[in-house]
Computed example of a mutant assay.
Amino acid sequence: MPELITTRGTFTREELGLILPHEHVFTDLGPMEAANWRGVKLDEVVDAVSPEIERAKAAGVTALVECTPEGVGRRVDVLEAVSAATEFPIVVPTGVYQEPRIPDWVREASEDELAEWMCTELTDGADGTDVRAAWIKVSTDDDDPDGIADSEEKILRAAARAGTATGAVIGSHTLSGDVVHQQLDVIEDAGYSPERFIWIHAQAEPNRDLHAEVADRGAFVEYDWIGGEDQSDETYLDHVEAALEGGYADNLLLSQDRGWYDPSEPGGGTFRPYTYLVEEFLPKLEARGIDEATVRRLTRDNPFDAYAR
């Protein structure tokens, strides 16, 4: 039986409700060399983030997926502390961010070594904790829309090998649909299935035909800046309607890319609540005539199917 691995143990489909598939609790977006994430005090993060987790719980959110990998301040002990304080399940990633925020140890590691590291985090515990990673987060350089850097391809191939060995899904921060096709080619060549791949930030690709092409290859297509300033709710509603009309209800994920405590900012910066999707966007989706069963699939079943193993 598929189970979702979290900071609070494993959960079956029936034990969870609405799941946010792309959010952040703790992320360091400051200069990489400053490594502000290393010196943070756990109680300060818990005090800042816990009220926002409680707001999400009150709105009906039952779990969220943390999307911070190595390179942008991943701290699984922080996630574990927030989770324990709020009794709220957080889904943890292994994996590595994009150029130029790839740590030196990753640059120096071989594909074999990276695959072994990911497998260990997925099966034994991540980042020096007993919390198992549930999935693999990778990325491609936002400033290079034409291809994948050699370092990013090495990480991706290692992820494909670790995903094949464990059943873990791979999710990639990729802003270009053409690059997603390249990534799918790489993972297929490594023996991994596109059906276990999530195109994160698909809304950044203006060509909606590419959204459909990627879904046709079996991958999940995720619209996850909902509530942000880059695109209006009407644009996201149009994205969702087009996907549903194309027959891609089973491939679609919805989230906000919100939160987070940033240790490079005073007091962790300005927190963006996790509640916009539930309180603002879903009522608009229902007003467009999207039925309750479909909304349930998009917000409960699909996230579980994507991240469970």
Rank of each mutant, 00 (worst) to 15 (best):
G17N: 09
F11W: 12
V25K: 01
W37Y: 12
L29E: 01
S176C: 11
Q203R: 08
R300S: 03
Q231N: 11
K41L: 10
L175Y: 13
G95N: 04
Y223S: 04
A48C: 01
T294N: 02
T6N: 03
E3A: 06
T86Q: 11
G191M: 03
T94M: 09
E222M: 14
E52T: 11
T270F: 02
V45R: 04
V106W: 05
R38I: 15
I155Q: 10
S176Y: 14
T123K: 01
A243W: 05
V96Y: 00
R161Y: 04
D291R: 11
G95Q: 06
K284A: 14
W135G: 04
P31V: 05
V180T: 07
L20G: 02
T7N: 03
D238I: 12
G9M: 09
A63S: 13
L210H: 13
R101N: 08
T27E: 07
D124K: 13
P103Q: 01
V92T: 13
D216Y: 00
A35L: 13
A85F: 05
L64M: 15
M32H: 08
G60E: 01
G167V: 03
I170R: 05
Q182T: 02
E195T: 00
L4Y: 02
G171C: 06
E80Q: 15
Y236W: 09
A81C: 11
P194S: 10
D141S: 10
N251R: 13
W199C: 07
A158I: 01
P194G: 00
P100R: 07
S255V: 08
A63R: 05
E80C: 00
E265V: 00
P21M: 00
R288A: 15
D127F: 05
R8T: 08
Y97M: 06
S172N: 09
G60N: 10
P283E: 07
R297Q: 13
T299A: 07
W135S: 07
F271R: 15
Y248N: 09
V49P: 01
E113T: 14
I5F: 05
F88I: 11
I200A: 14
R161N: 02
W117C: 08
T86S: 15
L122P: 11
D77Q: 12
H201P: 03
D291N: 15
V180E: 08
D104K: 10
E245V: 06
A160R: 04
C67G: 10
F26Q: 09
A59S: 09
V40W: 05
D301L: 12
E23C: 05
I200E: 03
E241D: 14
A84S: 13
A165I: 00
Y236F: 15
A149T: 12
V180S: 04
G125H: 11
R74N: 07
A59K: 04
E121T: 15
A48S: 14
R196C: 03
A34N: 12
D112E: 15
I19S: 03
E229C: 01
L252C: 02
A287C: 12
D146P: 03
A34L: 09
G228T: 10
F304G: 04
G177F: 01
A190P: 02
V186L: 12
R75Y: 02
T7Y: 09
D262M: 02
L244R: 06
L156N: 13
P303W: 05
I187E: 11
P31M: 05
A202C: 10
V240R: 01
G39C: 07
V106Q: 09
L4V: 08
M118L: 13
E286R: 15
E152I: 13
A212I: 03
L29M: 13
L252K: 07
D143G: 09
W105L: 10
Y97T: 08
T275A: 08
